[in-house]
Design a protein around this nucleic acid. Structure first.
Lengths: 220, 220
DNA sequence: CTTGCTATTCACCGGCTGGTGACAGGTTGG
DNA sequence: CCAACCTGTCACCAGCCGGTGAATAGCAAG
């Protein structure tokens, strides 16, 4: 190597117009990167989600993302891990003072809680949209973390309640949760779903009523 | 301008190893471009969908896409127009020899038909995924074309059947179609949805049964 | 102060993207 | 014959992307 030869190619140091100093603090930087990544994903979606964009958003060099998270994959995985606490943060464990006497009571409450939680969390919506759009390792892991947390929560709520015999609860519940997810995703993007407007609080009441009716229709 | 100066910069003409001639046929080329675009979107998804990729897929220069379709936007719009016939192609207009006596009969049949049609059409799935992932002008127009065609079909099937009073059919149907769409999308990407496996024919029978139960639960 | 470690930044690479202007060659009509 | 037109191709541009090697700046111990 000829460092002197390289030195000629390097641009001379500019006069630093902004002598602002970033504090040297790895933990804080790691957090800033993670926050920037989550914010970016929530606000811009997965389309323009990349190393450069995250680094720009975090106000640091992308090299640090490679160093601290091992690249975008690691960062996404960190988001997934961080997401494990989503259910706990967003959805109450208790029954909110209600008595859940039947499986129908339970599922109605779960469906409505899930609807509201998803509606309130743009990051989660983007991740769900990502899940149905791509099938990379990244997304699979994210999806896994999400579904695991959700399943755990449902199990915890269920207690000893069981559906009526003869009903394939797994399949029916999959349909119900699928309905909620698509409804909220579609609303988040276009403000409506299959001809049903989903903008005002009143619109959402209609949706909630329909959801209740569906759940009750199946589980009584 | 100095053409001679430019000429020096141009690479000299290579010996043409492949004297294959593309037929000079605008209509055929336009069709090839449209086909390539649909194929690409169906197979690769909207993520890597771009001018260069389509041109590569169609085996022609991207300039022709600008010339004939006015860019990607125009091409997408052409796909949308082309899509208007989706319903007619994929879903029968008649009742398949069944007697649809009640609104419940109708919705059960519609839901199942829609499920199968979506399952059989990867392009449509990609478009639906696109719809919930982005909110650009492109996608909006595509989405509009799709929903318009679908609404027309439903209306045609409905005839004079009406739901029971006191039921918000628009909201309930939106939930049902949302459920079908998310279920099929999720299955297409990961082979399952909310813990319900969706790979074998038997899996899909379960899903269909659950769907029927939900529809019947609401509409009787 | 010097040495060494760590956090942070910088400069650069190859590759791909969307977009454009110029050119080549066949076809048609005067 | 030439001129005008149409189809198709090419070379090139600026800009962004992910990725990497090396320089730099601050802190701490010797």
């Amino acid at each position: 190597m000829m460092p002197s030869a390289n030195a000629v190619l390097r641009k001379p140091k500019e006069i630093p117009a902004e002598p602002e100093k970033r504090v040297r603090n790895r933990a804080a930087t790691e957090q800033a990167i993670l926050d920037a990544a989550k914010r970016l994903l929530a606000e811009e979606g997965f389309q323009n989600f990349g190393i450069n964009a995250v680094a720009r958003g975090a106000g640091c060099d992308k090299q640090l993302i490679y160093r601290y998270y091992g690249g975008l994959d690691g960062l996404v995985e960190a988001i997934g891990t961080n997401l494990g606490s989503w259910v706990q943060d967003r959805i109450p464990d208790d029954t909110g003072g209600m008595f859940l006497l039947t499986y129908g009571d339970l599922m109605e409450r779960l469906a409505l809680l899930f609807l509201d939680a998803l509606r309130a969390d743009p990051l989660m919506r983007r991740i769900v949209a990502w899940e149905v759009s791509e099938n990379t390792e990244q997304v699979r892991r994210l999806s896994e973390a999400r579904s695991k947390a959700l399943a755990g929560w449902i199990d915890r709520m269920r207690g000893s309640l069981t559906p009526s015999k003869g009903i394939d609860a797994v399949a029916v519940n999959a349909m119900i949760f699928a309905a909620v997810q698509h409804l909220v995703l579609s609303a988040g993007v276009s403000g409506q779903c299959a001809g049903l407007a989903l903008k005002t609080a009143k619109d959402w009441e209609k949706a909630a009523t329909a959801l209740k009716r569906i759940v009750r229709g199946v589980y009584g």
